[in-house]
Design a protein around this nucleic acid. Sequence first.
DNA 1: CTGCGAGTTGATTGAACATTCAACTCACTG
DNA 2: CAGTGAGTTGAATGTTCAATCAACTCGCAG
Lengths: 209, 209
Amino acid sequence: MAADTRDRIVFSAMTLFATKGFASTSIADILAAANVNSGSLYHFFPGKQDVLVAVLEAYRDGIHPQLLDPAWKGVRDPIERVFALLRHYRRHLRTTECTYGCPIGSIALELHEPDPAVRQLLSANFKGWIDAIEQCLLDAGDRLPADLDRRALATLALSTMEGGVMLSRTDRTLTGFDDAVRMFRDYVSRLEESVTPPRRARRARVARA
Amino acid sequence: MAADTRDRIVFSAMTLFATKGFASTSIADILAAANVNSGSLYHFFPGKQDVLVAVLEAYRDGIHPQLLDPAWKGVRDPIERVFALLRHYRRHLRTTECTYGCPIGSIALELHEPDPAVRQLLSANFKGWIDAIEQCLLDAGDRLPADLDRRALATLALSTMEGGVMLSRTDRTLTGFDDAVRMFRDYVSRLEESVTPPRRARRARVARA
DNA sequence: CTGCGAGTTGATTGAACATTCAACTCACTG
DNA sequence: CAGTGAGTTGAATGTTCAATCAACTCGCAG
C-alpha cells in the first residue's frame, strides 16, 4: 500500500497540474483524485511544493517510456523523429481541443519565483528534451551541414513547439502550432538541400503560401 | 482623481502580474502598489478578473507606443526590425536576470480555463504582435521568396521568442534564447539568399557552430 | 503474543484572500 | 447653500486552502 499510495498521489498530481495548473490545484483536489487522506499525503511529502518536485522528477525520468517511445513508434529516420515528436504534441492539442499542451512549459511560465529545486528540475526536463532532439540531429550525420550547431537547432525545435502550443492553446485553433512547425520544417528541408545540391526536389516542398 | 486612481490600479497590476503572475498577485498587493483602498478598486472593477481584462486591453492598445516604437528606434530596415524586436526581449531578460520575459505569454500559459473575455484578449495581443511582424516581412518585398507564407514566418518568430524566453527564464541563462534566435536568423538569411543567388555572402553568416 | 512503527484517518486550525458594505468626503449643480 | 452622487475609506465577512495532529490499523520482528 505504501509505494502504491505515493504513486497514486504523484500520478494524480501530474494529471491535475497539467490540466489546471499548479497554483489552481488544491491539495484537496489531489486527495480526491488519488483517493487518499491528507495525512497520508503529508506522510510522504512535507508540502505541496514537494509533490511538484516528485511530479517533475517523474516527467524527467519518464521522458523515454512516456514521451519519446510512443512518439517515435515506427519512425526510424532521425530527422523524421524530430517531426514525429512535434506531431505527438499536435495530437495532444487536437484530442484536448487545444487545452492541454506541454505540462512542463505551463509550469515553467506559471512559477515566477520557483525555489531552486523546482527550477533545476524544470531545467532538467527541457535539457532532456533538447538532448534527445540533438541526438537525432547528430544521427542525421551529413544530411545536415557539417558546421550546423545541432544543439541550437534542437533548441529552436523546442521553442517552436512551446511557442506553437502557447498560441494554439490561446486561440483554441491548431493554426498557430501548424504555422510554426511548417516553417520550422521548411528550414530543416533547406538545410538538407543545402548539403545535397538540389538535383531534383528531394522532398515535396511544404512551407510556401 | 477618478481616472487617475483607475490608471494607477491598472499600471500597478500590469507590473505585478508580469512579475509575480496573476494568481500569485493578491488584491492586497495591487492595493498597496497603487496606494488605493479596496473599496476604490471595487468601485472601478467588479472583481480581480476584470482588472486582468483592463491590463490586457492596455497591452493590446499600447503595443506601438510601449513595445514597437522603442524596439524599432533607429531601425528602418523591415527585416532588421524583426530582429530588433527580438533583441528588445533579450534586453528585458538581461536587465532582469532572466526573470521577466513576455507578460502575455506568462499569463497565457498560467490560465488554464480562462473566461472568454480574457482568452480573446490574449489572442488579440498575440495577433497584434504577429500582424506587426507580418507587415515587416511584407515590407521586405522581393528580398524574400515570393511564395513564402509571411504570416507563418511571423508566427515562427513569435514562437521563437516565446520559447526562448521560457527556456532562458528557466535556466536563468541567455543561451536558450540566443540559440533559438540565432537559428531563426539563419533561416531568414537563407530565405534571403535563396532569392538573391549567392554571388558573395550578402551578410556575414551567423548560425554555424 | 507483544510491541514497534510505517502508514492511515479525518476533523481541526489558522492564515490568506477576494469581496462587501456602511459611512464618509467633497466637487459640482440647480 | 442644500442636495446629489462619483469616488473613497477600511473594518468586517465568509470562504478556500495548506498544513497539523492525535488517535487508529495492522503487518511483522523478536
